[in-house]
C-alpha cells in the first residue's frame, strides 16, 4: 500500500514534468512538420517565456490571468522574428545550413541574454503568485500547481487539436507538411503558414516556461537547454511531425525521468532519457506513431 502510494505520487510528479515537455515538444514537431528543421532555438523560447513571466509577476505586478496571454504573445513574437530573420532567408539553402543557423540562434539567445544588463547568468527565484497547497487524496497528494499544469496543458492541447484538424489554417499546415510545392499550388501562402506555425509553437513553449516556473521556481538563462533536448527526444520518441506523438512522448519522458530519480538514482535522470533516444533510434527511428521505414 505504501509502495503503491509512492508510485502513484511519483507518477503525478512525472506527469507534471511530462506535461511541460509535451508543450515544448509540440513546437519542435510542428516546426519539423512544415520546415523539416529541428529548431534548436526552441528550448530558448521556452526560457524566454519563463523570464517574461518572471518580469511580469515580480517587477510589474501583472495579475496572473494576464501573465499567460502576455507571455505567450511575447514568445510568439520571438518565434515569429527568429523565423523571419534567421530561417526565411535560407528557404532554398541546403538543410544543413538551416540546422547550423538554428544552433547559432540558440547560442546567440543564451549568451546575449546572459548579459548582466539583461537576464543575467545567475539563477533567479521565480515568484509564484500564489501559495502552494497540497490536497491529500489518501493515495497521493496533488498540489494546486499540478492541477493548474494539468488543466492548462489539457486545455491548450484541446485548442491545438481543434486548430489543426478543424480549421483551414490547420488543414494548410498539414498540407504543407506533406508537400510544400503542391500546397502552394492550392493557393496556400506557404511563408504565411510557416510563420503561423512558429507563432503557435512558440506560444506553447512560452506557456511551458510559465508552468515550469511555477513547478520548479528557479530560472536561469540556460534553463532551456536540457528541457529543450529532452522535449526534442520526446518528439522523436512519439514520431517527429506527429502531434499526438509529441504529447505521449513528453509524458513518457517526464515520467521516466521522475521514476528513475525516485527508484534508481537521481544522477541517472538525464542519462535515462538519452538511453531512451538510443533505443528509439535503434529499434524504431520513426517513433511510436511513425510509419515503419527501412532507412533511417
Amino acid at each position: 500500500m505504501e509502495l503503491l502510494s509512492y508510485v502513484l505520487q511519483q507518477l503525478i510528479n512525472g506527469l507534471q514534468l511530462g506535461a511541460v515537455y509535451a508543450l515544448i515538444a509540440l513546437g519542435y514537431t510542428m516546426v519539423y512538420g512544415v520546415l523539416r528543421l529541428i529548431n534548436f532555438a526552441h528550448g530558448d523560447i521556452f526560457m524566454f517565456g519563463a523570464f517574461t513571466a518572471y518580469y511580469l509577476i515580480s517587477k510589474w505586478d501583472v495579475p496572473i490571468y494576464l501573465v499567460f496571454p502576455i507571455t505567450m504573445a511575447v514568445t510568439a513574437l520571438l518565434g515569429f522574428l527568429i523565423e523571419k530573420i534567421a530561417y526565411k532567408p535560407l528557404r532554398s539553402a541546403p538543410k544543413i545550413a538551416l540546422l547550423i543557423t538554428a544552433v547559432g540562434v540558440s547560442l546567440f539567445l543564451e549568451y546575449f541574454l546572459s548579459l548582466n544588463s539583461l537576464f543575467t547568468p545567475n539563477y533567479i527565484g521565480f515568484p509564484r503568485p500564489f501559495e502552494v497547497t497540497g490536497y491529500d487524496l489518501r493515495l497521493f497528494t496533488i498540489t494546486n500547481v499540478q492541477l493548474i499544469i494539468f488543466a492548462v496543458t489539457a486545455l491548450s492541447l484541446l485548442l491545438l487539436y481543434l486548430l489543426i484538424y478543424y480549421t483551414k489554417y490547420g488543414r494548410a499546415m498539414r498540407a504543407l507538411s506533406h508537400d510544400r510545392e503542391v500546397a502552394s499550388l492550392m493557393g496556400i501562402p506557404v511563408d504565411g503558414i510557416i510563420s503561423f506555425t512558429f507563432i503557435v509553437g512558440a506560444a506553447l513553449a512560452g506557456l511551458g516556461g510559465i508552468l515550469y516556473g511555477f513547478a520548479y521556481p528557479q530560472i536561469n538563462v540556460f534553463m532551456g537547454i536540457m528541457p529543450g533536448i529532452k522535449s526534442f527526444i520526446a518528439a522523436v520518441l512519439g514520431g517527429i511531425g506527429i502531434i499526438h506523438g509529441a504529447v505521449l512522448g513528453g509524458l513518457i519522458i517526464g515520467v521516466s525521468e521522475v521514476f528513475v530519480s525516485a527508484f534508481i538514482s537521481s544522477t541517472l535522470r538525464d542519462g535515462v532519457i538519452f538511453f531512451i533516444l538510443f533505443l528509439v533510434l535503434l529499434l524504431k527511428p520513426s517513433g511510436i506513431f511513425g510509419k515503419w521505414i527501412d532507412k533511417v
Binding site: R171, R174, A175, H178, D179, E181, V182, S184, L185, M186, G187, I188, P189, V190
Partner: peptide, 23 residues
C-alpha cells in the same frame, strides 16, 4: 508566387497527381 496566381484563377493539376494521401 503560385498562391497569388491561384487567386487570379490559374489552378494546377500537378504531374503524378500528388494528392495529399493522409487527408
Amino acid at each position: 508566387r503560385p498562391d497569388r496566381l491561384v487567386r487570379m484563377g490559374i489552378c494546377t493539376v500537378p504531374e503524378g497527381r500528388r494528392v495529399f494521401p493522409n487527408l
